[in-house]
């Protein structure tokens, strides 16, 4: 039953979309078509869906494990940025080297960069009791400024006419395309593998069991001797590592260089993805594809109907609202006062 409420929420979001578009004076049928159908009318479009879903799924899966254990890592966007910085830094360091080791080294550094950024809130929480929601979020702003500093300064392309962007990565620093005629790259395989690994971990391993117990019954977890601090470190490092990988995948895949902004808010959208996916890896896979479609739809509606890109954010927020509201209708039954008195007799 828990998978019903995302579907109801989706239907309600579409209805709200009809109202929203009507208010804006746009033909709702054409707008919804541009949003949800048009992007998927070509092979290239399906490839783009995978490209956009890759970072969302990577981060969403990791965040859902954290949310299950009651650790609120809200700063995945910053961890993604650090992954892009560290992985991209390797690409710039070896920009004139054509060698097989460059890409694996970038992946490792991207993951480590994200982990490093997530380790700060983990340390502040476990040692100083500082709320990880606020610290991880503040670090997102710091990470964005750090990236801006690097591409405006030391990492700026020397032949780039002073534009704030790095050199374009060499071929050996770029993720291979796995579907010709599209931009779908190796990162998609990483995302699918991560979904499978997380599923096995949650269902079949001790650490997965601990995640569930700490989140659902903290008192029982304490009694069983599970360390809450260990859980905080585990959740944040996993989230940071996955977000770092997502950042690296973005810069060495579709972007191909470092820019002042490397993500349209994937780290925040992944929070919605985690909830819509019911905090389950397979659910997150589908939710990630759905949210990826909302990004594609936003772009397509902007091009074909001149609608603002911000519509995407409104849709995403609405979906999460409806989902949270629907959950109560799934978990509880609506009972009228007359029904109660009838039963009492």
């Amino acid at each position: 039953m828990v998978f019903v409420s995302p579907l109801i929420a989706l239907v309600l979001t579409l209805l709200a979309g009809v109202v929203l578009f009507s208010v804006m004076g746009v033909n709702p049928q054409a707008a919804l078509y541009a949003f949800f159908i048009e992007p998927l009318t070509s092979k290239y479009g399906w490839g783009e869906l995978g490209v956009k879903a890759t970072p969302l799924i990577l981060i969403g899966v990791a965040l859902s494990i954290g949310f299950r254990s009651g650790v609120w890592n809200i700063g995945a966007e910053g961890q993604l940025t650090l992954g892009a910085i560290c992985g991209g830094g390797i690409a710039l360091l070896f920009y004139d080297t054509e060698a097989f080791f460059v890409l694996p080294l970038m992946v490792v550094c991207g993951i480590l960069g994200g982990m490093l950024w997530a380790a700060i809130p983990a340390w502040l929480r476990t040692s100083f009791n500082a709320n990880e929601i606020l610290t991880s979020l503040m670090l997102t702003y710091v990470a964005t400024l750090l990236l801006s500093l690097l591409v405006h300064g030391p990492w700026r392309d020397p032949d780039g006419f002073n534009f704030p962007e790095s050199r374009i990565f060499s071929d050996s620093a770029t993720l291979p395309i796995i579907l010709s005629g599209t931009r779908l790259h190796m990162g998609w395989v990483f995302a699918l593998a991560f979904v499978a690994a997380a599923w096995v971990m949650l269902a079949r391993t001790i650490i997965g069991f601990q995640v569930k117990v700490v989140g659902e019954a903290p008192a029982a977890a304490r009694y069983a001797g599970f360390s809450v601090n260990k859980m905080i470190w585990f959740s944040l490092l996993l989230g940071g590592g996955a977000a770092g990988l997502a950042g690296l995948v973005e810069v060495s895949g579709p972007i191909g260089q470092l820019l002042p902004t490397v993500s349209p808010g994937y780290g925040f959208t992944a929070i919605i993805v985690a909830f819509v996916g019911r905090l389950h890896p397979v659910g997150v896979l589908f939710a990630g594809l759905l949210m990826a479609l909302s990004y594609l739809g936003g772009e397509s509606a902007q091009i074909s109907m001149n609608l603002p890109l911000a519509v995407t954010g409104v849709f995403q927020g609405l979906l999460l609202f409806f989902l949270l509201g629907c959950d109560v209708l799934i978990q509880y039954r609506v009972v009228t006062r007359t029904l109660i008195s009838k039963r009492a007799h």
């Binding site: 919605i272 409104v314 927020g317």
Partner: peptide, 18 residues
């Protein structure tokens, strides 16, 4: 409360931009 608050922020950013 945490999830709803986050949703409110994401929604507010989108709606205000729109």
């Amino acid at each position: 409360q945490v999830a709803t608050g986050l949703a409110l922020t994401i929604f507010g950013i989108g709606l205000s931009a729109l």
